[in-house]
């Protein structure tokens, strides 16, 4: 199982499609930086195929005033949780 890290918003960039194309059936996706826009209820549909395996970084949601807009299907994690996600995965890949 790999952890994929995405820092681009699906509203402005198609990089998320590359991340999804490279994901295996158990892989997880963590949204960081501008990528956390993808956790918004209006945009989370782009990640429908990885529901239940989608995470977003709390610091980046809060800094952008997006925490209240975060969809309930997204697991919100802090920096320590970010490290834990990398521990649980065999490897990580970054998409930017």
């Amino acid at each position: 199982m790999l952890l994929h890290i995405l820092n681009r918003s699906p509203a402005t960039s198609e990089v998320y499609r590359q991340a999804l194309a490279a994901m295996g059936p158990e892989d997880r996706l963590l949204l960081i930086e501008d990528g956390v826009q993808g956790a918004m209820s209006t945009l989370v549909g782009h990640f429908a195929e990885v529901t239940g395996r989608l995470y977003a970084l709390r610091d980046d949601l809060e800094a952008r005033g997006l925490i209240a807009h975060c969809d309930t299907t997204v697991a919100v994690t802090d920096m320590a949780g970010f490290v834990t996600l990398t521990e649980d995965a065999d490897r990580t890949l970054s998409w930017f």
Partner: peptide
């Protein structure tokens, strides 16, 4: 870009976890 900030925060979190 935010990359340096993210990397630095992650680095500190990694060390804090004892890695």
């Amino acid at each position: 870009s935010q990359a340096s900030h993210s990397a630095l925060r992650f680095a500190k979190a990694v060390v804090a976890r004892g890695h």
